[in-house]
């Protein structure tokens, strides 16, 4: 099912900006308000907008359900592994990377990495839930 021409054009215009905004929130989550979860939700919304406007059947060869499941699982395992590496440096959940200069984009040790992992994981997770709801149509 495809929505009207106006909706499709508007969605095409809006969704690249949503992806950019989501990446900004993901990468600057430790400097400005935001974080991984919010970035992931915006990322999922940008794809869900496109899929509802253009019809999920028409996007089957471009967007694949298996990718989202894979990203979700890989990111979950990556978070657990990254958290466990701290065991080598003293304790679990230890921030083992160099913390850098206060206020720069690359600072805070593994906090930006954690934001990126959580953002991708939450975005892919919401896409998996969306696909699960889509099975009833």
């Amino acid at each position: 099912m495809m929505m009207s021409n106006i909706v499709r054009t508007t969605t095409k215009m809006v969704s690249p900006f949503l992806v950019t905004y989501s990446i900004y929130i993901m990468l600057y989550g430790h400097l400005t308000p935001g974080g991984g979860f919010q970035a992931g939700v915006i990322l999922a919304v940008s794809i869900i907008l496109l899929m509802t406007a253009h019809g999920s059947k028409n996007l089957e060869e471009k967007v694949n359900e298996t990718w989202f499941k894979m990203i979700e699982n890989i990111m979950a395992i990556s978070i657990l592994i990254m958290v466990s590496i701290g065991l080598v440096f003293g304790a679990m959940f230890y921030n083992f990377l160099h913390r850098g200069t206060f206020g720069l984009p690359i600072s805070g040790g593994m906090i930006p990495l954690f934001n990126i992992f959580v953002g991708l994981k939450v975005g892919a997770g919401f896409m998996v839930i969306y696909y699960a709801l889509l099975r009833w149509f």
């Binding site: 308000p33 206060f102 805070g108 040790g109 906090i111």
Partner: peptide
Amino acid sequence: VGVSNLVMGVLAD
């Protein structure tokens, strides 16, 4: 913590 967003510092460190 070394990050300027204290909420993220509490949540992620």
